[in-house]
């Protein structure tokens, strides 16, 4: 069992991570680098002469290499969690065909990226933000509550459980994410909204792929394990 999860998660997570990193470098990183020019004071969007004319830096092998490494690592971590959840569901009699992987992936995106983004949108460097500790606690709480709520909707029976699911989905947003006392970040709002949208868009693409690949490799490893039992 553990080997099956390990192999499926490593393949699905690594492949997804590489593609996600590529999407981020093409669509997200240029917005981040542009915003850093405002953070460093090279550009200023208040008053005259603050246009976006300064050149945005291009590829930086060391910096971008580290981003590829950490994005791949992160999606490998997500793959372990996703395949573990698939294994648990299948143990309870839920069949997971490759197509269903898409739903699992989108549900993962809702729990890990969209739900936290409702209170704490993906932030540009140079955005004003509250203390890091409470925001991380809110992030973990939101991801956990959303994942549990979605699981109850998908697999729970009866209206009582659905009610609990609705409460779990709503609670993080009723409580609310920690926000700074005042908004004094130097980054232009136009770049901040573009950054948040691009981060979520690449996240949805990556999570959809992760779900499909996780289901595919999980099925493949399960068949292989069955074949070995039959051969023995």
């Amino acid at each position: 069992m553990f080997t099956r999860i390990l192999v499926s998660a490593l393949f699905a997570g690594f492949l997804t991570g590489l593609i996600a990193a590529l999407l981020q470098l093409v669509f997200v990183q240029p917005v981040l680098l542009h915003a850093e020019l405002y953070e460093s004071g090279t550009l200023n969007h208040f008053g005259d002469g603050g246009g976006g004319a300064a050149a945005v830096p291009g590829v930086d092998l060391e910096r971008d290499g580290l981003s590829v490494l950490f994005t791949t690592l992160t999606y490998t971590g997500y793959a372990f969690l996703l395949v573990a959840a698939m294994a648990l569901a299948e143990d309870r009699g839920v069949r997971i065909a490759v197509r269903q992987g898409l739903v699992w992936g989108v549900a993962g995106f809702l729990a890990v990226q969209l739900a936290p983004a409702l209170g704490a949108p993906p932030e540009l460097p140079g955005s004003a933000a509250a203390e890091i500790g409470p925001r991380q606690i809110w992030w973990f709480g939101t991801v956990g509550a959303t994942a549990a709520g979605l699981a109850l909707i998908a697999f729970g029976r009866g209206w009582a459980l659905r009610g609990v699911a609705a409460l779990l989905l709503l609670a993080p947003h009723v409580i609310g994410a920690p926000h700074p006392d005042e908004f004094i970040g130097p980054a232009p709002p136009e770049l901040a909204s573009l950054f948040a949208a691009r981060a979520l868009g690449t996240g949805l693409a990556a999570w959809s792929l992760l779900g499909l690949l996780a289901a595919y490799f999980w099925q493949r490893e399960s068949k292989r394990a069955e074949g070995m039992v039959r051969a023995a």
């Binding site: 990193a21 981020q24 997200v28 990183q29 981040l32 910096r63 971008d64 580290l66 981003s67 950490f70 994005t71 992160t74 990226q113 936290p116 983004a117 704490a120 949108p121 993906p122 932030e123 540009l124 460097p125 933000a129 890091i132 925001r135 991380q136 992030w139 950054f195 981060a199 979520l200 690449t202 996240g203």
Partner: peptide
């Protein structure tokens, strides 16, 4: 960069 791009605080 990857933390920002994936929406972590």
């Amino acid at each position: 960069d990857s933390r920002h791009a994936m929406g972590f605080p």
